[in-house]
Nucleic acid binder design. Structure first.
Lengths: 223, 223
DNA sequence: GATGAATGTCTTGCATACAAGAATGTTGAC
DNA sequence: GTCAACATTCTTGTATGCAAGACATTCATC
């Protein structure tokens, strides 16, 4: 049950493309997605486009009103904060479980991932750091030993990706983030479930907070 | 963004019906869902049936293999344990947040719901207790003050419904469950986030454990 | 007798056609 | 000039038709 099984059908292609456009902010909240326009644009009939809409609707990216169409649904600041809060809790749960189940081998993997992140920070390569960061978190999910939790975490991680990406650009965040990663690994190494959960919760919550500030400043600037 | 917006389209009707059949265990894991058969059965064409399949696939109830069809996907014992574990963590998160945000009014509501549960227990009405139980938990989700978390909790609660229902039938579970509810309310009343989270986590985990035993005994009986 | 290729059937994926509901514009009355 | 009722147009929801991939059966070969 992969969250998004990359199948070779047209509907999947269109769904993936639209998802990308929504993530990239090409569409604003409330925009209507025209079936025929999109169908023409991708050279397919309305059927696969409609299937794509349904998938996006289930992911919460679009809202379908019966007999009225599909509308883009961008999360507002409040909902984003909420989503980061849930992400923090899910990751905390993963860390808690991982603390009791993690192997030495997996610990080495996490340390190795952090070393690579360190390289990226030193080279000021934000994009590469971002990738390594995601791998680190995914590795923690995997170590929870709970496949369902892992998939839920990956799902939300994916959904928050475009927003996390923005806030990582903030000054000094990279190095700080890396330090937090080390604290998480240390807690896992100690087998301290509570400490691991608290560490990763704080780590992710910081992202939400930073994002909150970012939004607030943008809003102020707009006024 | 209701998890299942009851819309008046054929696809929704078929999706709801199939979901019910899957939940009720009419279909076993791996069963193939025949488009044409189901279409005839519900007096519609293949199109809405296909749309229904997609929706069920997104919910994880069926698995779609390209060019091969839709197959029912019932969670096995391991995945169920995993799902209960995640449910416990999500509810713990909701309780943690609720502890800091809950109002006196909401506390009264929870106490009232528990009183009604008490009535149900006294009348040995398992079904009614079950309903009141769900309302109690839903009220805790709502008090988290996090709409996204609330929806995620409701989604998983819904998915686990058929399995929870079974284990509540176990001897003595009703009264025990009610006592745990009281402990949760007490912790919330104290504003003790950790205690509230631990209490509800234990409460839900017990359900998973009980379920585990149930499965194990069934398996033993089958051998 | 077993294995593999070829063919035939069945099922899905997509395109197109049609019908019904929603949105829009027009006309008429006040 | 404004509002409302009606008609028109547009869009969505559903049905059907067609093509390509998957499965099964059969036949040939080792």
């Amino acid at each position: 049950m992969e969250p998004t099984a990359p199948q070779d059908t047209q509907a999947d292609r269109v769904a993936a493309a639209l998802e990308g456009l929504i993530f990239d902010g090409v569409f604003s909240d409330g925009d209507r997605l025209d079936e025929v326009r999109i169908a023409e644009q991708y050279g397919v009939s309305r059927t696969p486009v409609r299937e794509a809409f349904q998938r996006l609707a289930q992911s919460g990216l679009v809202r379908q009103l019966p007999r009225r169409g599909a509308f883009v649904r961008q999360p507002g600041p409040i909902e984003l904060i909420e989503m980061f809060e849930v992400m923090a809790e899910l990751e905390a749960a993963a860390a808690r479980l991982a603390a009791g189940r993690i192997t030495d081998e997996a610990l080495d993997l996490l340390k190795d991932l952090n070393r690579r992140s360190d390289d990226a920070v030193r080279e000021r390569d934000a994009d590469r750091y971002y990738d390594e960061n995601e791998r680190f978190h995914a590795a923690v999910y995997a170590q929870s030993g709970n496949g369902f939790l892992e998939r839920e975490c990956l799902r939300l991680q994916r959904r928050l990706r475009p927003f996390r990406r923005r806030q990582l650009r903030l000054r000094g965040r990279l190095r700080q983030s890396l330090g937090e990663h080390r604290a998480i690994v240390a807690a896992l190494e100690d087998g301290d479930a509570t400490a691991a959960a608290d560490a990763i919760r704080a780590h992710v919550t910081v992202q939400g907070e930073k994002f909150h500030h970012l939004i607030a400043s943008l809003r102020q600037a707009a006024e």
